[in-house]
């Protein structure tokens, strides 16, 4: 095994040198480093902070939902954030959902039920684009997985609105953002100090709201993250023990050969 193994280690080191470049090519090409944030749900062992998610839901409902849909989240899913069945029912009922056709053949409106999904602010993608200068605001359910550096990027974007540098040509109707690819984004800065009043009394700074809505959006993208990590720990522990035992049995069986 000697020389082959040594060669393997050497090759792996070569790979390690190239590794950081290859797998995140998109951001490397953009050249803008996305600052890393601390998240309660960071890999490998983090988990979601309930309070942050609830505040994030509030930010979504009061700020983002005016333009951004959340198509894959049903009201019943919100129980995962720590709400009771009653609270979820009440929250759902605040929404008006289109249903039908009824026996007369007409569509009608009714209060939301837990099984309903968050309604979209626009009837279809083209209406969304038309109402937003030609660029449809993306659905936010998966946004935390749909961008390189996911949560760090969302946070950076939300807090990255600033004055453009002196020599920068900002086009009509666009806003300068330090982290958006190309630096010109159709969305105006959505968060401002105190835009939301958190029921738990947390001061609604831009940083806080950005942090909380990002946590919420990481959950909408990966609702089973907590369950996955929990299962993962059990599986890894089992496997570590199991591997030791398999190796011991292997040594025992091979003893007379060696």
């Amino acid at each position: 095994m000697g020389s082959f193994f040594k060669g393997a280690v050497a090759a792996l080191l070569a790979t390690a040198l190239f590794g950081p470049i290859s797998l995140n090519s998109a951001s490397a090409a953009e050249g803008v480093a996305i600052p890393e944030q601390h998240w309660s749900f960071s890999a490998p062992f983090g988990s979601f902070d309930n309070e942050a998610r609830q505040r994030g839901l509030q930010v979504y409902r009061e700020v983002c939902s005016a333009c951004h849909s959340l198509d894959y989240i049903a009201f019943r899913n919100l129980e995962a954030l720590g709400y009771s069945e009653e609270q979820v029912k009440a929250l759902a009922a605040q929404y008006t959902i289109e249903d039908g056709p009824n026996d007369e053949g007409d569509m009608f409106e009714r209060p939301g039920k837990p099984s309903d999904y968050f309604p979209s602010p626009f009837p279809n993608a083209k209406a969304a684009a038309a109402a937003n200068g030609g660029a449809a605001p993306p659905d936010l359910s998966l946004i935390a997985k749909a961008r390189p550096h996911g949560p760090d990027y969302i946070y950076a974007l939300l807090t990255g609105y600033e004055e453009p540098p002196a020599d920068f040509q900002l086009m009509e109707g666009l806003n300068y953002n330090a982290y958006f690819p190309g630096h010109q984004i159709a969305m105006a800065a959505p968060l401002s100090e105190g835009a939301v009043e958190f029921s738990d009394g947390t001061p609604a700074t831009v940083d806080q709201m950005a942090h909380d809505v990002t946590t919420f959006l990481m959950w909408t993208a990966e609702p089973h993250l907590d369950a996955s990590r929990e299962m993962g720990i059990k599986v890894m522990l089992f496997l570590v023990v199991f591997c030791f035992m398999l190796y011991a049995v292997k040594r025992k069986i091979w003893h007379d050969i060696h």
Partner: peptide, 25 residues
Amino acid sequence: HTAGADDGETRRDFLLLTTVAMGAV
């Protein structure tokens, strides 16, 4: 062990038994 060894005896091997049990789990 069947490699040239003489034994036909099956030893109740605690380690082996536990390993197989873990595998079944």
